[in-house]
Simulated assay, not measured.
Amino acid sequence: MAVEIITLIVAIIVAVILWKVLKTIKSMVINTVLGLVILVVANLVLGLNIAYTWIVVLVCAIGGVVGALLIIALNYLGIAF
């Protein structure tokens, strides 16, 4: 009986951890997509020539909308990208 209870407790803990990790991944994917959409729209509307390198995608993945706006501002000011 004790083994079944311990297994159930471990299964619940694993389920909660997986739920939190997947929730975080979902948020990061949504954040990345929104950042890249803003970047693409800015490239098309403002005529910027920002290349989609792994650095740009990483900044958009971590920073999301704020990261995309930072990349646009740095490009517009001629500092980077």
Rank of each mutant, 00 (worst) to 15 (best):
I25Q: 11
I6D: 08
L69Y: 12
L46H: 07
G63Q: 06
T7F: 10
L58E: 05
W54M: 13
S27T: 11
A51H: 04
A11T: 09
T32G: 09
L44V: 09
L8V: 04
I71G: 05
V45T: 13
A61I: 03
M28A: 13
A11Y: 06
T7I: 07
K26R: 13
E4F: 15
A42K: 05
V41D: 02
I79V: 15
V45Y: 10
I9K: 11
A73R: 15
L18G: 07
L8K: 13
V29T: 14
M28V: 14
Y52P: 01
I6R: 09
I13A: 15
T24H: 11
L69N: 09
A73N: 14
V16I: 12
G64W: 01
A11F: 10
I72M: 08
W19A: 14
E4S: 15
L18N: 11
L74T: 07
I12H: 01
G67Q: 02
L34V: 14
G67K: 04
T53V: 05
M28C: 08
E4P: 08
N31P: 00
I30T: 10
V41T: 09
V59E: 09
A68P: 00
C60K: 02
W54Q: 13
L48E: 03
N43F: 02
K26A: 15
I17Y: 11
S27G: 14
I25F: 14
G78Y: 03
I62P: 04
V21S: 10
V21I: 15
L74D: 05
G78M: 05
L44I: 07
S27C: 01
N75H: 13
Y76T: 14
L58K: 08
V40T: 13
N75S: 10
A68K: 00
K23P: 00
K23S: 12
T32V: 03
A2I: 03
L58G: 11
I50L: 12
V40A: 14
A80G: 01
V65C: 04
V33G: 08
I12Y: 06
L77V: 06
V45D: 07
T53I: 06
A42N: 05
A68E: 01
A11S: 13
I71H: 02
V56P: 04
L46C: 12
V10W: 05
W19P: 00
V66C: 00
E4V: 14
A80Q: 07
I30Q: 09
I12K: 07
I9A: 15
L34S: 13
I50P: 10
